[in-house]
């Protein structure tokens, strides 16, 4: 399926650049929203949940940074999959007129979101610098921070796979978008973004269910590197990597099987 990617690499580039440009074109603050948005939402979340989950839990080391790590990854996941989901229906006018490899649209949307996500990581850098220099609650900066790209790459593969599946489904069923919005909202509460799974007072069954969420593994790996400065638990690595590969294979297969029928439903 990806054999003509080389020929259409210019198109891929143009769409990625376009997505990033258009997103910030008509706002006064432009690209600064990439920093402002996670900063402001993290402040709100710290104010709301800080007293309930943050202050009593010494394991978290630094609650604002803990929260920001989770939120950044969650936000990338939901934004990129939602954009990928809508990408085919939004490009209907092109797909109906000219031959283009259709997977380019979900792929380009995940890539452009990944780039803005990488830019937004500067906020995290700012947090780490601030808390280490100016407060008595420093994060644990070690060479392991250099491994932080590993969970991000796995997350990228996961988003691409799920994005391909969703974009295919949304061509045939328009109401998938609303269902997926609800799913994303649930995911926010079932991923340990503002709480710590280990200090929840829940039955072992519920805890196992929470840990079965691949986002749990990814967020935990990322926090191990960035916040706690230690090696991740290898179970997380293998579990999330396996999940991402399965998703990518499934997404490619479903998309490949159904792509010739898109035109009849757009």
């Amino acid at each position: 399926m990806f054999k003509d990617l080389y020929k259409y690499r210019y198109l891929l580039r143009e769409i990625v650049v376009k997505n990033i440009k258009i997103q910030y074109r008509n706002s006064v603050l432009g690209i600064f929203w990439t920093f402002l948005q996670p900063l402001l939402t993290t402040i709100v979340l710290v104010l709301v949940f800080g007293g309930m989950f943050g202050s009593r839990d010494a394991q978290l080391l630094n609650y604002p940074t803990y929260l920001l790590c989770g939120r950044l990854l969650y936000e990338f996941y939901t934004q990129s999959t939602k954009r990928a989901m809508r990408s085919i229906t939004l490009s209907a006018s092109v797909i109906k007129k000219v031959y283009v490899p259709k997977y380019i649209y979900p792929l380009a949307n995940v890539i452009s979101n990944f780039i803005t996500f990488l830019i937004s990581l500067l906020v995290l850098v700012g947090f780490i610098v601030y808390f280490n220099l100016f407060t008595d609650k420093p994060t644990n900066v070690t060479p392991y921070i250099l491994l932080a790209w590993v969970p991000l790459v796995i997350l990228f593969i996961t988003c691409l796979g799920i994005g391909l599946i969703l974009s295919t489904m949304s061509v045939f069923f328009k109401d998938i978008e609303y269902l997926y919005d609800v799913f994303c909202m649930l995911l926010f509460y079932f991923t340990p973004i503002f709480y710590n799974v280990k200090s929840l007072k829940v039955s072992p069954m519920v805890m196992k269910a929470l840990m079965a969420n691949p986002m749990y593994s990814l967020v935990s790996m990322f926090r191990s590197c960035v916040l706690f400065g230690e090696m991740w638990n290898w179970n997380w690595f293998w579990y999330s990597l396996g999940f991402s590969i399965v998703m990518l294979l499934m997404g490619t297969l479903i998309f490949y099987k159904k792509q010739d029928k898109f035109i009849l439903h757009l």
Binding site: K7, Y8, Y10, L11, E14, I15, V98, V100
Partner: peptide
């Protein structure tokens, strides 16, 4: 440039 890329041409 976008339209050109859609037809497979480089920038």
């Amino acid at each position: 440039f976008l339209y050109g890329a859609t037809m497979g041409y480089s920038r």
